[in-house]
Design a protein around this nucleic acid. Structure first.
Lengths: 334, 334
DNA sequence: GTGAAAGCGCTAACAC
DNA sequence: GTGTTAGCGCTTTCAC
């Protein structure tokens, strides 16, 4: 059944293979109405389905997009992957998914493999650490359109990116918490000195300074959840215990919730908490988490759209910065 | 940079394109040691990378596998997708991901698109409802090896499946809860009358009957989380309130946890809860959820391995049933 | 041990 | 408006 070819269709329709193409692709040449219907009928009866591999090889454009994320099982990336997949499918494109596992080496191997598969474009979600190095160079040598998702493109890389309004969002989030009357508001964030998470922390600091509050209570933790919880517990038990915690990622905020729980502190009574990302788990935690983010469907859609623009335009496509919206729930003490 | 072709390599190495293939594929013909090294050097200097599209088109085998799940943003599927991706990459294969959105129509459209892309094989995770209809037929006409993941293959479809030991697992889980001394143990499950979730419920009933307990407290709910919680709340407030709930999926158990929380019941003090799946959220709930499942890495690996067998063998590859293991946490009252 | 040549299934000039 | 033809970049048979 699978070996029905355009040739067969042509034969049955009593025409040539080229005409079959013209019909199926609506061009580049016109086809007489009745020829067209004969072709269509033949396609139908034979159950003909064009081989996309051959089409892509010949036409040098593929309807696949490669998507590389650090870890598709982490909530934020999970939802981004889902959103991208939805947007891509709506656009008639298929998604090749890769996990870099926060590993530069592996990330590059993936990008190469995807380029070798001749994907039409690449959507890359880098992990925080080290947006630096000759990264941009390697990327441009892939010979495939790349759009950076969630983080900015490496300096001087003339590549386009789609990011959240991280700094502004961090500020808005902090302002909301400040508005509740808390004074000693800590920032729970990652160790990276650049990237989205660190931008959010900067936004928090902006708000603190603007409100005349001390922007020094910052706790930076690594990727390990258990150790994050331990560090937060130590913080909550220490002399400098914050009254509220603004976390730069929902995952961190959720860890803070657990830490509070284990320390015997009530949220939001004894400690207010807010997160960043707008992920699902934030809605189902106890108490439910106040968080700020952009609907993932938008994020994914803009990512795919931007990639399409990059594919078709020669000039550099401008970066996109997506506004974020606050979702107020119980954890912040509202 | 991208347009370096095998031709160019041959030219630089002073040999023919065919020999370049022999070297790169280690066959089918032998190559003299020094010719080989000249080729390798040329590959190196030119940065040549074979076009996988062309290779696949010519050799009729592709190193991609299609993976279709109902919703990659639901915990269980999220982890399965991740595991499959890892296993595939370790195997040198790329994963094309699709979400059927619990929609038969869409699922089929996806399978067709993936087949059109000439994927080497298909890993299909169907949603519960309706494994029936002419589904098997449509699938076999795809002309691509298919392995059913997580649910059994449709009747008479001579397709292979990889599933968890759902019924046995449901029984083990119920037995564990029964062992705690609870008598009135309810089963929280889905509405489908067949499929993994329903098999787990059967296992629960087996255990109840074997222990001389009443296997009638069953609450069946749909996919909507909010309404599930409401129904559970009604159950918990009613006259037939269970002392313990065995849920046939972690998501349901988590909903039960929320419902208990909102009803003012303490878990495990007033109500014991156990789930099925072994997903991540179960480890991070409050209290942490006792659950039974198979490490996802195994699940994914076996899925990919089985697909590989199907690809290379003509005979029907036997189904795999994966044992599940109990992870005891606080929610069951241990 | 090596190379020429015939396609895989398709698109898109270019003729007619 | 339709058909012929030349490839896309690769694998692999077959001759040398």
């Amino acid at each position: 059944m699978r070996n029905v070819t355009r040739q067969d269709v042509a034969r049955l329709a009593g025409t040539s293979p080229a005409v079959v193409s013209y019909v199926l692709n609506d061009g580049p040449r016109p086809v007489a109405a009745d020829t067209r219907s004969r072709v269509l009928k033949a396609v139908e009866t034979l159950g003909y389905r064009p081989n996309q591999l051959a089409r892509a090889l010949r036409s040098q454009r593929s309807n696949t997009i490669g998507l590389v994320v650090p870890d598709s099982s982490e909530a934020f990336f999970t939802e981004l992957v889902h959103a991208v997949e939805q947007a891509a499918f709506a656009d008639g494109a298929l998604v090749l998914l890769g996990n870099s596992g926060f590993d530069r080496e592996r990330e590059l191997r993936y990008l190469e493999s995807l380029a070798d598969m001749q994907v039409g474009g690449l959507l890359l979600v880098r992990s925080e650490s080290g947006a630096a190095k000759g990264a941009g160079r390697a990327l441009s040598e892939l010979g495939v359109p790349v759009v950076h998702l969630n983080h900015r493109a490496p300096r001087g890389a003339r590549a386009t990116s789609v990011v959240l309004a991280n700094r502004a969002g961090g500020r808005t989030l902090a302002e909301h918490v400040i508005g509740h009357g808390y004074r000693r508001i800590g920032c729970l964030t990652g160790t990276a000195s650049s990237g989205p998470v660190s931008d959010r922390a900067r936004g928090w600091a902006d708000a603190m300074r603007a409100a005349g509050l001390d922007p020094s209570p910052v706790l930076r933790t690594g990727l390990d959840r258990r150790s994050t919880r331990e560090q937060v517990k130590a913080w909550l038990r220490g002399p400098e215990r914050p009254e509220a915690i603004v976390a730069t990622a929902d995952g961190l905020a959720l860890d803070a919730l657990s830490a509070a729980q284990e320390t015997g502190l009530r949220v939001p009574g004894d400690l207010a908490v807010a997160g960043f990302g707008g992920t699902e788990p934030a809605a189902h935690s106890w108490p439910a988490l106040t968080t700020i983010g952009r609907p993932f469907a938008d994020f994914g859609r803009v990512g795919v759209e931007t990639l399409k623009s990059v594919q078709r335009q020669a000039e550099r496509v401008p970066d996109r910065v997506l506004d974020v919206e606050l979702t107020v729930r119980r954890s912040c003490g509202c």
